[in-house]
Design a protein around this nucleic acid. Structure first.
Lengths: 339, 339
DNA sequence: TTGTAGGCGTTATCAT
DNA sequence: ATGATAACGCCTACAA
């Protein structure tokens, strides 16, 4: 069918192994034969079969990306395109290809990951989420294949390479910002409690209100999916309370958008009646009306550094465990007001 | 190293080929041996090496995604995450993995594609753009590997499978909408003229103004990149004109957002002083202030159908060339006004 | 129904 | 500096 190393060898009148060495640009091949072999490759339009090479030397130059479950929906949240952008840029720099999981349910994802790993399709993986009791994580650890997680692992974080923001601090700062504006009825709207990012930000929120002597109220803490719909649900719950909050810490811009729309529909105006601070600072935060004050977590960098870190691990297997902290910063806009 | 078919064969006391047949669930293996072999696989934690399988039977169960050049920036435009979402969903249904190019420049992309194809890393590819004189397209045609393009090929479209909107009609309808509102100084802001989508929409625009007896003015047609920045540039040009347009057909929501922001900064109000209709209808169209009237082109479906179409081609090599038209529809919001 | 053996296209280890 | 040859792990005639 397609032209192989043997065809080239025949044409150039050398052994297949010589051709192989020319491809690797081995120093022990004379310039003259190199020339001849290269000419033959050119003439036949030869291209190495990567699959065969992979099999022979057990390396793929590809990295696997594991999306959280329900990848279908997840793309709705601008977070993922943006990490992907970082990953794509990083991968390109390192000349690595990207192999992406497409599974919806957790069990499917695990199966896909097993295929990637044991099928030797990738040299390492990046997990785009971090949740508690994750079988995928457990499997990866057991298999002893290089991987890095974007987000902090729930446990054993000393043994796992990860790239994350300081979400505890970010949650704390966001809440303190609201407190400084004079709020004391502050609610927290976060994603699933399985997600470590939620836990961290919530803990920061906690710390902040405690520090300010504000009592913790469980009815002020709501968990929904990181989508517009989630924000809507959450706000409905909060508004049904007897004593409504005057400020909201929302763990995701897209959710905050849902919150904004819902409040608008009901006729509660932001920031006059309700202050909102959210996280991620994606384009929609800037575009929302009012524009959202948001914590910029530098999503691109999260992805970019994940690749760099992963490639290091792949290339030097004894690379020490490293965890990278991506800085965050608060971007003040129009969604918060003094009280 | 890892457990292979031979280890399983040894443990189950059968030949490797038998194990292979059990994996394929061949009907000519007795239930009893199947049981035994499966037990052995279980015990050893066996997983097939996909690379080896690929090499043996020349199939990968993966599809390649080719992003347009400057993939880094391109993720900024919500179009791509959304097609990817469709592709991801489709791929998952067909149990196929996704392999993504990461190249920036055209030459890099071509090289990557050549690696995917000749390296037999993928069974087929999806091109996420369509432009004139594309070497990647030419290569793919020459290699005779299944592929489908999202967007209409510039030429030979009878011989190429593609999934697209009727962008000519969409462009025409958008323009006619503005004409019906009483506008006759209508400008067109599109992407690069290399992109077929730009050409099609522009042709539709042309047709519409001609049909209405409005003279074509070249200074009313601007081409920039499909990003916010592009919209900004374009609008600046238009405003420097002696006779400013009163309405804009903008070929992309993100561009339109740039237009909106620029106009806002200058103090030109939309839709009072300027009507705008754009394309794609991504989330930001809904969020922009004023909300953008936009042509919904059903991006998700574009990706989803592309995968379905591609898998058909892969599975039945004699599949006739098919081209799929995804319907569009106009979503009326607040950015256009009678004149 | 099962086993044997050769091949998929490379790379790597010995020789020469 | 180059050539033979044996892996890499799986699949599939062909035999038995």
């Amino acid at each position: 069918m397609s032209v192989t190393i043997k065809d080239v060898a025949n044409l150039a009148k050398v052994a297949p192994s010589t051709v192989s060495r020319v491809i690797a640009n081995s120093s022990r091949i004379s310039e003259k034969t190199k020339q001849r072999v290269r000419a033959a490759m050119e003439e036949l339009g030869y291209h190495p079969n990567i699959i065969a090479r992979n099999l022979a030397n057990k390396t793929t130059e590809a990295i696997g990306i594991v999306m959280p479950s329900s990848a279908g929906n997840v793309f709705q949240n601008p977070f993922f395109p943006e990490v992907l952008r970082g990953i794509s840029t990083g991968a390109h720099e390192k000349k690595r290809a990207i192999y992406m999981s497409t599974g919806e349910a957790e069990s499917e994802i695990l199966r896909e990951v097993m295929q990637m790993v044991q099928g030797r399709r990738v040299d390492g993986l990046i997990l785009l989420y971090s949740k508690i009791d994750d079988p995928v994580l457990a499997y990866l650890k057991e298999q002893n294949i290089p991987f890095v997680v974007v987000g902090k692992p729930f446990k054993d974080s000393e043994y796992i390479t990860y790239v994350d923001n300081d979400n505890f601090k970010a949650g704390k700062e966001a809440t303190e910002y609201l407190i400084e504006l004079g709020h004391n009825r502050i609610a927290f709207i976060g994603g699933s409690l399985d997600l470590v990012v939620t836990i961290d930000r919530l803990t920061g929120y906690d710390k902040a209100i405690q520090g300010a002597g504000i009592p913790y109220r469980s009815e002020y803490v709501i968990h929904e999916e990181f989508l517009q719909e989630g924000g809507k649900e959450a706000v409905c719950e909060l508004l049904s309370l007897e004593e409504r909050p005057t400020a909201l810490v929302v763990a995701d811009d897209l959710m905050a958008l849902g919150v904004l729309n819902t409040l608008d529909a009901i006729g509660i105006s932001v920031p006059e009646d309700m202050s909102i601070i959210s996280f991620n600072n994606v384009l929609i935060a800037e575009m929302a009306r009012p524009a959202l004050t948001s914590i910029d977590i530098n999503i691109f960098e999260l992805g970019y550094q994940a690749v760099r870190s992963l490639t290091k691990k792949i290339e030097a297997s004894s690379q020490p465990i490293e965890s990278i902290r991506i800085p965050h910063s608060i971007v003040t806009r129009q969604s918060c007001k003094k009280r």
